[in-house]
Amino acid sequence: MAHGSRYKVAFKRRREGKTDYGARLKLIGLDKHRLVIRVTGNHTITQIVDIELSGDQTLISAHSKELKNMGWLGSGKNISAAYLTGYLCGKKAIKEKIEGAVLDMGLQSSTKGSRVYATLKGALDAGLEIPHKDVILPDEDRIKGEHIVQYAKSLDKAEMDKKFSQYLKKGLSPLEIPDHFQSIKEKIEKEVS
């Protein structure tokens, strides 16, 4: 740690690597709703947040755990679940008359086609207006899980049982993921709209 009379200790959240205050200040200056996306090891969390003097106010929230209550049998951490979480949050926001927001991805790195951008695509498809460039969004086939189907077809029965044991334990064949994804998306459309 530095010494001297001119040294200023950084804020605790900055020292812990939790907050980039420069980026946060820019978002505050926009005076718009923020679409906050946080991706953990096992889940995706999406919120519509307003900034107030008393602190951030969460208006809408969606968590990938909510998908399980709707019948989602897949993982809560894959691109499909991230998209559906963003779609769910977007539908809830439209229902509450929120039409647009700006993306707040925190300290997460910006990687083309990542779960953060899959969540963003879900919110966009739900009807939210969020400034973005289309090149960062993942492909539609990847969101639906078509790449998993192709991989599963290349495996023999024993390998497939080993690699996809968690899916099979829940009663979901990897070959059925795109259809299951579409059914959950339609269920969100019916329940939230």
Rank of each mutant, 00 (worst) to 15 (best):
D50H: 04
T111F: 00
K163C: 03
M160V: 06
Q150D: 15
G76M: 01
I28D: 12
G145M: 01
S173P: 07
K144C: 05
M70Q: 05
P174Q: 02
D104C: 02
L35C: 13
G90T: 14
R24L: 03
T58R: 14
V149T: 12
R142Q: 09
K68S: 07
L172Y: 01
Y167F: 13
K12I: 08
I184H: 03
I177T: 01
R14C: 11
G90R: 12
V192P: 11
D104S: 08
S54F: 03
S5M: 02
E191A: 11
L73Q: 08
K187C: 02
I143H: 00
E140N: 06
D139M: 09
A126F: 12
G122N: 00
L155V: 06
Q150W: 05
K121P: 11
A101W: 05
D141P: 09
T111G: 04
A81T: 04
P131Y: 03
S109M: 12
W72F: 06
D56P: 15
P178A: 15
N42A: 05
L120R: 10
L172A: 12
E191F: 07
A2Y: 09
Q47C: 00
I48L: 09
R6L: 10
G55H: 11
V9H: 12
Y117L: 00
R142W: 06
L168Q: 05
A158S: 13
E129H: 11
K169F: 04
S114V: 09
E52I: 13
K157R: 15
I188Q: 11
S54K: 10
I188K: 03
S109A: 13
V39E: 06
A93L: 02
V9F: 09
R38K: 12
Y7G: 14
I136Q: 01
H132P: 02
Y167H: 10
G100C: 06
S114H: 06
A118Q: 07
E140I: 14
L107R: 08
R24F: 02
K8C: 11
E66Q: 14
T19I: 15
G90K: 06
A101H: 05
K121V: 07
K133L: 01
V49S: 06
G76L: 02
K91W: 03
R115F: 07
E159K: 05
Y167G: 00
G86K: 01
T58S: 09
K153I: 11
K133N: 01
K185N: 01
N42F: 07
A93W: 03
M1K: 07
I48H: 04
L137Q: 02
G41R: 14
K112R: 05
D179A: 12
G4H: 15
K18W: 11
I79E: 05
E16N: 10
A101M: 09
S61V: 12
Q47N: 06
G127K: 14
M105Y: 02
V149L: 05
G106H: 04
H132M: 09
S183G: 01
S165V: 03
G86H: 06
D141H: 13
A101Y: 04
E146K: 13
P178Q: 14
S183T: 13
A152Y: 03
E140A: 03
Q150Y: 12
K91I: 06
D125W: 02
T46Q: 00
K65F: 11
Y87K: 07
L84E: 05
F11S: 07
I177E: 02
Q182C: 08
D161W: 07
K12S: 03
Q150M: 11
G122M: 01
S110T: 01
G4V: 13
L59F: 00
A10Q: 11
I51S: 10
E189A: 04
K190Q: 11
Y7A: 10
